[in-house]
Design a protein around this nucleic acid. Sequence first.
DNA 1: TCAGCGATTAACT
DNA 2: GTTAATCGCTGAA
Length: 205
Amino acid sequence: MPDNRKLPADFYLNNNVIKLAVSLLGKVLYTKINEQITAGIIVETEAYNGVTDKASHAYGGRRTNRTEIMYGAGGVSYVYLCYGMHCLFNVVTSGPGEPHAVLVRGIEPLEGLELMMGRRKALVHKPNLTAGPGSAAKALGIDRLLNGQDLTGDHIWIEDHGIRYAENQIVSGPRIGVDYAGEDALLPWRFYVRGNPYVSKPNKG
DNA sequence: TCAGCGATTAACT
DNA sequence: GTTAATCGCTGAA
């Protein structure tokens, strides 16, 4: 893998987290854990739009030890434990001060399939190996130790392999599992590749 | 200090 | 369709 496919730091500085969530579709997410590489094509994302988004951990400008990482410059990872058992991986975006983030909800395995199956304790390869945010993160070996990692570094990074989806292949819809966010839960800030089997839950179209 | 809960998943009925 | 698993974070006391 030539290093020049790795997305540069300024890719992540875009302040429009909605557009960035769309542009991450088709990009390839890599992890290198204990010298072992796994990678997958990002096929499902959700945008979390900073302080005005009731579904975001940073809503209302909330600044805690956990959310602090989102207030820095984009281009780092935000990993946190959800429901006491699942690590969810986000890409922090935008310039400093704007706590935007994109949740990666589904990947299509590209490298290290055996390794991913081992991490997921899967005997056969089924799409649910990497469909859904908890599953995708676990398959890639992402845990809270990767929180705050520089995405232009050597442990976790994203590459552009030239994969492009036609506009009509990209579907937007309401985000999953954010009912507590009131009307913000209805915003169409979930994006996924139409018909891709590694997309979680509702995949109509 | 501590009760309540969550950007979920898998295994049930 | 329903629910157990499971624990760090948050906000109130």
